[in-house]
Design a protein around this nucleic acid. Sequence first.
DNA 1: CGAGCTGTTGACTTCCATCAACTGTTGTGG
DNA 2: CCACAACAGTTGATGGAAGTCAACAGCTCG
Lengths: 228, 228
Amino acid sequence: MLKILTCIDRVPIFSTLSPASVNKVHSIAHHRHYEVGETVFTTGDAVDYLMVLISGALRLSRTNKNGREQIIRELGPGEFYGELALFAELQAEGDLYAIAATDVCMMERKAMQEVLRDSPQVAWSLLGAMANRLAEAERLIANLSLLDVTERLVAELLRLAETGEATASGVRFTLPITWAQLATKLGTTPESLSRRLKQLNHNGLVTTDGRHVHLLNLKALQDILDDA
Amino acid sequence: MLKILTCIDRVPIFSTLSPASVNKVHSIAHHRHYEVGETVFTTGDAVDYLMVLISGALRLSRTNKNGREQIIRELGPGEFYGELALFAELQAEGDLYAIAATDVCMMERKAMQEVLRDSPQVAWSLLGAMANRLAEAERLIANLSLLDVTERLVAELLRLAETGEATASGVRFTLPITWAQLATKLGTTPESLSRRLKQLNHNGLVTTDGRHVHLLNLKALQDILDDA
DNA sequence: CGAGCTGTTGACTTCCATCAACTGTTGTGG
DNA sequence: CCACAACAGTTGATGGAAGTCAACAGCTCG
């Protein structure tokens, strides 16, 4: 009981539910826990539920025959997967696995459809989340196709810098993932990323110590993007 | 008056509207026409409306400083742009232009929000459309990053083949766009595409005459993808 | 200690974009 | 009606960005 209450409690998209709807969600929600590295599903598995994260993090990625992996999206608390399953039987295209200890709420398709019809607010929340994700996906498409590795790296560093702390000369932050994982997100390899980073360092734009990153010249970094 | 009626009439996502909502949509919808090649907006323009296509086709793309263009998505009748604008002020990231004579309905943000709150059916329709578009975008991400040009070409040819007519030896269809435009969709250049196509031809898998395409060996083509 | 993981560096290779030239077609206006 | 411009597509030559392969250093952990 507690865990199901938690389920609804901690998920923003359900924050506006009426008491009646809360009961309905109660009755259809299944709780599930995943450990780091645990697989939720792999390519080809049937998905017929909407999955909302309570805590932790999941990663959706695809891998080709050469073992090359592309991270498609990452899900944090409050985010969800399975929106397409609300509308049709769905074969997963990609692998979903936990990159942190993760708790999720799983809602079956049909029951969730009812909740959505009764609760425009929830539909509205979903719509907003989807619109943002679509915009992000389309930005990634453009970046992969139009920017070289250096430019994609700089773009990501500047993005991460927004969460960092300002210093006299620039911004300092700690990379939340390994450099190899960042390479996979950016659609490149650890080797290439390492070389590009070395070059930025050589040009006096960035210093790194492990995952600790210091951007020394935000303006110059921004310029790299602007002439892209 | 006629054109506004047409607006709602011919757009599937509004097919379930109640009479009251129909009136509301009437009052907020602006009709607009674009000729081939005409620009709807370019990168950085403010977008504060939802735009639904009645007929024609629009293309959303981004171009980098070298003139390299990536097609992000194409919109046909019934499809829409501006979903993100429903939630926030939005700077367009990319250029939107007409690739056919096009009629659209434009709905201002605030008014559209009301319609959505009152009409769960419309929200549901939008949700379904968005979910599909997101899935498509994520497929494109994976393809751009994991497949080489030949594989992306074959994938697209097989997709197009679904709309073609079967022949003794395979499937025949006509390319709906120029080869150069296809190259842009696939994130490559006309030159590269031409070479890959020549190679497929040489291997006896495909013949072409202008935009007329004949796939001679679906199984072999599918194999190329399966080993990817 | 040794195993395993993260990250780096060097040598090599390959795919593909770019540049340039050329063909064939279409359409337009003098 | 022809000439010429504009565009679609092809082909060859070339260069460069980045992926691959391999070896190695440093770190952590059992």
